[in-house]
């Protein structure tokens, strides 16, 4: 099957700044693909190039088999796009916003109601309210409804969950799962590593480079070193002690524990506990754990930085 999105050797420079450096990526039809990385990693540039809103400096990209530069009209008719910032009209009501976008795309809400029903029905009780007076989560649902109103084949979502609370974020990802069932290819970017697990495949991106592309499971299985969670009551002291341990490879806070990797191939956790006790951390506990996407991201980030 032909890929829905094909990117090869794509670079984007803004003067001196290299926002994207020779990116290659292929996304299959119907995939829910996550672009994961912090602010300034190049996520927005990549999505805007695919959404035909920016020209690449080098390389090519195609969406639905059409070149993003030459066939931008075709792509604009067949894609849904939700920019990073809430970009609807604050002074128009929910219903007016929806019908405006429907007419722009030459369709009506009724025609595609079945696709947006699940999302729009949640905000329909407030259809007379001005978009500017909606809460963050509801704005997001309205923006998604507007992006879907013309039944796009591919959907670009630039950081839809940034600044949104954890509850609304969960709901949003639930909606994306349902859209996937309609066969829409979805490319979504996010700075939240914990959302990676909800995608079919993810690309980790940092400073314009793709660090890794794989399924979330594939990514975490690439984590090279055994990973341990270390806990103690005085976390600050524990962290300082771990960092000063001569054999420490990395020590990062993770929730209520500290994730630790050791430089040595054969590492006995007991030796670390003995060391910690000497440092005054008497209540330390250590257990091996499975790495998460965030662990991988940090490891890849560090490796990338030392190799450059």
């Amino acid at each position: 099957m032909n890929p829905a999105i094909q990117i090869s050797g794509l670079s984007k420079h803004y003067g001196e700044l290299q926002a994207l450096q020779s990116v290659d990526l292929s996304i299959a039809p119907g995939e829910l693909f996550g672009l994961i990385g912090p602010d300034g990693a190049g996520k927005t540039s990549l999505i805007r190039i695919l959404a035909t809103l920016l020209l690449p400096t080098e390389g090519t990209a195609s969406v639905l088999g059409k070149d993003v530069v030459k066939h931008y009209r075709f792509i604009r008719r067949n894609m849904g796009y939700m920019p990073g910032r809430f970009s609807l009209y604050y002074d128009l009501s929910v219903e007016e916003n929806i019908s405006l976008f429907a007419t722009i795309f030459g369709t009506t809400l009724q025609e595609n109601y079945e696709l947006v029903r699940e999302i729009y029905s949640q905000i329909e009780p407030f259809k007379d309210r001005k978009a500017g007076a909606l809460s963050g989560g509801m704005k997001q649902k309205l923006a998604l409804s507007c992006a879907l109103i013309h039944r796009p084949k591919v959907l670009f979502l630039d950081e839809p969950t940034t600044g949104v609370d954890a509850v609304s974020r969960r709901e949003f990802w639930g909606m994306l799962q349902n859209l996937k069932a309609h066969g829409i290819t979805i490319l979504v970017s996010t700075p939240y590593m914990d959302e990676a697990g909800l995608c079919d495949r993810i690309a980790l991106i940092q400073k314009g480079n793709i660090l890794a592309v794989d399924s979330p499971g594939g990514i975490v299985s690439q984590f090279e070193r055994p990973l341990y969670a270390v806990r103690a009551a005085d976390k600050y002291h524990l962290l300082k002690s771990l960092r000063s341990y001569p054999y420490a490879h990395s020590a990062f806070s993770f929730g209520d524990s500290i994730h630790y990797t050791d430089q040595r191939g054969a590492f006995a956790p007991e030796s670390l506990l003995t060391y910690l006790e000497g440092q005054g951390v008497k209540d330390a506990q250590i257990e091996p754990i499975q790495a998460g996407v965030e662990d991988c991201f940090m490891a890849l980030m560090q490796r990338h930085e030392t190799s450059h």
Binding site: G37, P38, D39, A41, T162, G163, V164, D165, A166, P191, M193, Q206, K235, Y236, L239, F252, S253, E294, F297, M298, M301, Q302
Partner: peptide
């Protein structure tokens, strides 16, 4: 918000240090 995971932790190191010096820290986060 939006900061890479390593820098985020370095940021929290700063918070810990400040708190250790006696500064009270009142923080919101997603």
């Amino acid at each position: 918000g939006g900061v890479d995971p390593i820098t985020r932790r370095q940021f929290w190191d700063l918070i810990y240090e400040a708190a250790h010096r006696g500064v009270t820290v009142f923080v919101t986060t997603h």
